Simulated scan of single mutants.
Amino acid sequence: MSDRQFGPWRKSIRSGGADNCVEVATATDEHIGVRDSKSPNEGVLVFGPEAWSDFVEGVRRGEFDL
């Protein structure tokens, strides 16, 4: 179990404050955490900085558009 600490958690302003989206936070070691806002205590997906950057760039380029 890691003692990695994340915070503050944030979600898209497009969520309208709803509790049915994902939240992201940066840890002190620069890893990125992603969790479900409906179940914040159910676990965190952790990504390294390079993997997160690649994902964000892919989103911006439309690589994941349906």
Rank of each mutant, 00 (worst) to 15 (best):
G33K: 12
D36W: 04
G7T: 09
G7I: 11
V44P: 09
C21E: 01
R35F: 02
W9Q: 03
G33F: 08
P40T: 02
S15A: 11
R4K: 15
S37D: 13
V22Y: 11
P8K: 13
S39L: 14
G17L: 06
A18E: 11
V44S: 06
H31S: 14
V44Y: 07
T26F: 15
K11W: 01
R4M: 15
E42G: 11
G17N: 07
N20L: 05
D29Y: 06
F6T: 06
N20R: 03
V44L: 06
L45C: 05
V24M: 02
G17M: 11
D3A: 08
V22H: 02
T28M: 12
K38G: 03
E23V: 00
V24S: 05
I32L: 15
G17T: 07
R35S: 07
T28H: 06
D19L: 07
S12N: 03
K11I: 08
F6Q: 07
I32H: 03
D29F: 02
R35Q: 05
G33S: 08
G7W: 04
D36P: 01
V22L: 12
G33W: 14
V34R: 03
P40R: 05
A25V: 12
E42N: 13
V34Q: 04
D3N: 11
R10K: 09
R4H: 12
